[in-house]
Design a protein around this nucleic acid. Structure first.
Length: 108
DNA sequence: CGAATGACCAAGC
DNA sequence: GGCTTGGCCATTC
């Protein structure tokens, strides 16, 4: 386990959170996009690592993988994320995926 | 400092 | 469309 740190250690993590906080309701972004926006095109995995301990004020539910799917395995977190997105108006197709062309954050 | 970790990704079958 | 493989990378231990 890991000690919980309010403002989380590194600058990189904070940038991740700062960016995610800017994602508007009803929109989603991918880990890869976040990584690129931070100047580390191949650090998508690290972004996911950061999300593991994300602060409460971060809309983590708006972060999905490149396929527009919730990356969490079918845990309680998965269901919560899906429910939150649905509440924001984001639709899932049969395969449980989101149409990024449609719900992707326009900034990207 | 070296090895492990993981809410990723693109390419190949 | 689904499964596997190799690579990437900041953070942790």
């Amino acid at each position: 386990m890991k000690l919980q740190n309010p403002v989380t250690s590194s600058n990189f993590f904070r940038r991740v959170y700062a960016l995610v906080r800017q994602v508007p309701r009803g929109r989603v972004v991918t880990y890869g996009q976040i990584a690129r926006a931070l100047g580390a095109p191949r650090a998508a995995r690290t972004v996911g690592w950061a999300m593991r301990d994300c602060p409460a004020n971060v809309p983590w539910q708006r972060v999905v993988n490149a396929r527009g799917e919730i990356s969490l395995r079918p845990t309680s977190g998965y269901h919560e994320q899906r429910a939150r997105l649905k509440e924001e108006g984001v639709r899932f197709n049969r395969a449980g995926r989101i149409d990024l062309k449609k719900y992707g954050w326009k900034k990207f």
